[in-house]
Design a protein around this nucleic acid. Structure first.
Lengths: 117, 117
DNA sequence: TGGCTATATGGTAAAATAGCCATATAACCA
DNA sequence: TGGTTATATGGCTATTTTACCATATAGCCA
């Protein structure tokens, strides 16, 4: 693979690398939602959510369509669920590793959390 | 899912969101490699590569073991290949979309690249 | 038309990230 | 022991990302 390819792939990965955007993608797995619904869900400023959506769209992960006064977003890439599964596996493995080291699962989750903040 | 869970998952996704780190993970799919080998491969400063590795390790994606004077890193999570497949699908879909819009694949690849830089 | 609602965009400040240099640490070898 | 190699870490700067506010745009409805 070429350097260029890794850059393209990194852009997509970057789009996945924010809690609010993961929440949005997760919600969109069920059915499409408009910006105002997603804004309520995420709990950030409407402009912030709008920018998250623009970023996801730009990465090719979602698409939008207008319906009256609203703009609805829907998942474009069904493989997202595979990605979530992958994340699950890592998290699970991480917790297991800490347990093996004699620590509790909650401790390890806390560590993950601290690192991610 | 809880907000906390999305934060943990975002940390893992963030670890994947850099061309050099994707290159490293890809290389480690074959077999384990020491830091000096990875440094040559990536072409950045040794300290930079070391920090990328620390980040990947912290995310739970790789682990290290010492052997003599070298430290070898190996992939901890075989599901990484699934993630790469997921990225492939998005990239492919993106290119297809541009082609449908009457543009060439190279144009779309360039656009991805520009956006990712 | 005027006002209301939904969404996107520009500006800006704060925080996070990336990269390099210098340096610390640890293992090996002569 | 002293020198060399491999790796990690602290410090610093430049860049990127994020979030909010203010505002622009567009569609709807009375």
């Amino acid at each position: 693979m070429q350097v260029k390819d890794y850059q393209i792939r990194a852009q997509i990965a970057k789009a996945l690398a924010h809690p609010s955007r993961l929440l949005i993608l997760d919600a969109l797995q069920e059915h499409e939602l408009c910006v105002c619904e997603l804004t309520k869900l995420v709990g950030s400023d409407q402009s912030t959510v709008s920018k998250h959506l623009a970023l996801l769209k730009n990465a090719g992960l979602i698409e939008d369509h207008k319906q009256g006064n609203n703009i609805y977003y829907r998942l474009l890439c069904p493989c997202i669920s595979k990605f979530f599964t992958c994340l699950e596996e890592v998290v699970h493995q991480k917790i297991q590793k800490y347990q093996e080291a004699g620590k509790s699962a909650s401790e390890s989750a806390c560590k993950c959390l601290r690192n991610s903040i």
